[in-house]
Every structure is written in structure tokens, then in C-alpha cells.
Amino acid sequence: MCYQEKRTVMNLLNGIVFLAVYCVYAWSKYQSGVIEPGDLKSWALIMLVFIGIGIVATIIMQILFQIFIAISIAIEERTEDEKKINKTIAANMVEDEMDKLIELKSSKVSFIFAGIGFFAGLIALVFNVPEVIVLNCMFLSFAAGSLLEGIYSMYLYRNGVKNGW
């Protein structure tokens, strides 16, 4: 598994944990009735806090991931020579045209899924579905879109990607 694949797996796990924690939290709040279903301001605040937590968690995970990669390379190379380790890390971390193409194709999947969620939310509003459900659907469609992006990215790394396809 190459560096980019490992990073994608880490982002996927991060996204799954984020989504699961948000779903459990939001569902418990909704069921307990602590927040009124019509209180969109509170729901928006919860989502903003979760987005903030998600960003911080991603940064921390990236730092831990880099440390983990550096340690694993040092063990593999059986050296403590910092220059050699840094050179191997730099060689592994090269982001080239294939990575950019995969990123482009997989982000397209994410945008499509998020767009569908937004569109479904608008349709739900037309049919008088409570606003809080619609808001959560839109939020979750963005989060799920991000997960799908990771899964599709992994698929492309494993099965290959062709220019113009």
C-alpha cells in the first residue's frame, strides 16, 4: 500500500468516526428533546462545532500519521540517519499527475453526492418535511460524500485510472 493509499485510509477512518459520533450525538439530542426540532439555530451551532472538531481531528491525525510513517520508514530502512529517512519520506510523498487525476475524479463523486443531498433536501422541504431533518440530511450528504470520495479514490488506486475516461 503506497503513501497516498495509507493517507486515504486514514482520512476514511477519520470520516467514519466523525460521521458515527455526529449521528449518535444528533440522534440522542433529537430523541431526548433537549433541542426543539424547530430550533435551527441550535442545530446549526452543533454542526459548526462538529465541523470545527472534524478539522482539528484531521490536523492531529495528519501529524500522528507523519510520525507513524517516519518511524515505520526508519524501521524498514534500519537506519537512524535523518537525511536518509527524510529522503525516503519525500520520495514516498511525491504527489504527481496520477494522484491529481484520482483526486479530481473522486472529488467529482463527492460533489455529485453532496449535490444530490442538497437537491433531495429542497424537495423534502416542498413536501413539508421538518426543517431539522432537511438540514441534517444536507449535512450528512456532505459528510457521506466525503466518505464516498475516499472509497472511490481507493478503488482508483487499486484498479487504475485512465486519462479522459
Binding site: Y3, E5, A91, V94, D96, E97, M98, D99, N159, G160
Partner: peptide
């Protein structure tokens, strides 16, 4: 480029 890209090109996946 990365080694991964060379592997993909060599095996006809990219």
C-alpha cells in the same frame, strides 16, 4: 513521479 505511478503505468493501469 511516485513509484506507485510507475507501477501503474508498467501494468497498464494508468
Amino acid at each position: 513521479v511516485s513509484r506507485q505511478t510507475i507501477i501503474a503505468i508498467e501494468s497498464g493501469k494508468y
